[in-house]
Amino acid sequence: MSSNKQAYWKANLRLVAGCLVVWFVVSYLFGILLVDVLNTIQIGGYKLGFWFAQQGSIYVFVGLIFFYASRMNKLDRKHDVHED
């Protein structure tokens, strides 16, 4: 594997790892493990933990994928591995 491809792959792995940390935090941590703690905070009619479990985590998932896609497009061009 060329060093450029290796650098590209490492950068990709770092990005994926970062995104998956957020993915884990909003669903498993905020929505399940820490739900009782967060439920002591109230946002409008929502308890915060409940909101993350039934609404917030889904919004973050959507944002994460678009963030990942746009960062990968930049990475593709930076390492000159894009398709067009």
Binding site: C19, L20, W23, S27, G31, I32, V35, F50, A53, Q54, S57, I58, F61, L64, I65
Partner: peptide, 15 residues
């Protein structure tokens, strides 16, 4: 609240 597993489970897979 317990049904949250389906909401998160069936969307988080797309990530």
């Amino acid at each position: 609240y317990d049904a949250s597993v389906y909401l998160m489970g069936w969307t988080g897979g797309y990530v």
